[in-house]
Amino acid sequence: MSDREVNFLLVHGSCHGAWCWRDLIPELAALGHSAKAIDLPGHGQDTTPVNEQTLDACRDAVLAASHPDTIVVGHSWGGYPISAAAEANPDAMRGLVFLCAIVPVSGLSMADVRKRAPRQLTQSAVVHAPDGLTLTIDPEQAPALFYNDCTDETVAFALKHLGPQTILPQTTPLAITSNFERVPKAYIRCTNDQTIPPEYQVEMTRDWPRDRVHALPTSHSPFFADPAALAALLDQISRDL
Rank of each mutant, 00 (worst) to 15 (best):
G42T: 07
K160N: 12
I176H: 08
I25C: 01
D211P: 07
E52F: 03
V155T: 15
A125C: 05
A18L: 11
P222N: 03
T205H: 05
H43D: 13
L241H: 08
Q45I: 09
G163H: 00
A142N: 06
A84F: 12
A30T: 04
G74F: 06
A232Y: 06
Y147D: 03
Q170M: 13
V103W: 12
H161Q: 14
M93W: 06
S76Q: 04
A92W: 09
F8H: 13
A228I: 08
N179I: 02
H128R: 14
G78N: 12
E153S: 14
G44T: 12
A92K: 11
L234Y: 07
I167C: 11
A101L: 09
G74E: 03
I38P: 06
S238N: 05
Q45H: 13
E5D: 07
L121V: 00
S83A: 15
T191S: 15
N7L: 01
T218R: 09
A117E: 02
E87D: 10
A231D: 02
T172E: 14
S219P: 06
L63Q: 13
D240V: 08
F180E: 09
R212W: 04
L230P: 05
L168H: 10
A30M: 08
T48G: 10
D46L: 05
R210F: 02
M1I: 09
T70M: 08
L234D: 05
T172V: 14
S34I: 09
K115V: 00
W19D: 06
T166G: 04
Q194G: 11
D226T: 09
D226L: 01
T177R: 08
P26T: 11
P198N: 10
H128Y: 15
A225T: 09
V113C: 09
F146G: 13
M1D: 06
H33E: 03
R189Y: 08
M1W: 12
Q201N: 01
D207K: 01
W21D: 00
D235R: 04
A175M: 08
I188Y: 05
V126M: 07
A85S: 01
P173I: 07
L234V: 05
V6D: 01
G79Y: 15
R182K: 15
Y200G: 04
L99T: 14
A129I: 01
P209N: 11
C20I: 04
I196D: 12
